[in-house]
Amino acid sequence: MKLHDPLTRYVVRLGDDALIMGHRLSEWMSRAPFLEEDIALSNVALDFVGRARLFYQYAADLMGGEVTENTFAYQRDVRDFTNLLLCELPRGDFAFTLCRQFLYDAYSLPFTQALCKSADSQLAAIAAKAEKESRYHLRRSRDWMLRLGDGTAESHERCQNALDQLWIYTDEMFECDALLDGLIATGVAVNTASLRSEWLDTVTETLHAATLVIPEAQGGVTGGREGIHTDDLGFLLAEMQFMQRAYPGLQW
């Protein structure tokens, strides 16, 4: 499925981030460290899946014809997914999931705030809803950074390890490409490069409070926006798309 219209590609890109993040979070259901976290993690997962649906529904409207939100989720292969690599990494342990979430939430809040001002009113409307969620998500993941970072020696070590592994995937959030440049010029897209300093301030403040250290810069791994993913995404899609692939063209 090749998308050409820049706005559609942008909207789908945002939908992909949300869907893959939501899917990974939902994998915690029945596996969380205690029952309240089964509920909380699935709450956040639901927010992301809900966000993905809004983006995909908008993209489907833009494309018209037979395309629906499900076309994007279930009928594209790995090369057509344009989510950030950060979102697709396997969930790892609880520290890995919460560190990933914190790093992303610290980006997602200023991102959705900026998207509220998009020249595209539909995107601005989706962002207005998402921003409220991101505010709560960040508060929650920040609290977990404090508890894990400043909890026990084990939790501190797990948390620091997770940060060290995740750090190289954070550059991609602030990357601009030709698609973005064009849409930034017309006031539709968020200039993600401009969010980096706010993100870094949030992260620095929180990690410091959590007695954790900012990993040394190691250069960034990117490629998600071009459909160059880790091996893990293919397996995620194989599972997620199983029904639509095994029984195509039916109503469920």
């Binding site: 969380a32 460290p33 205690f34 609880f94 084990e154």
Partner: peptide
């Protein structure tokens, strides 16, 4: 697997 999280908390 969640024991270390509960302990940290």
């Amino acid at each position: 697997e969640g024991a270390w999280v509960r302990e940290a908390m």
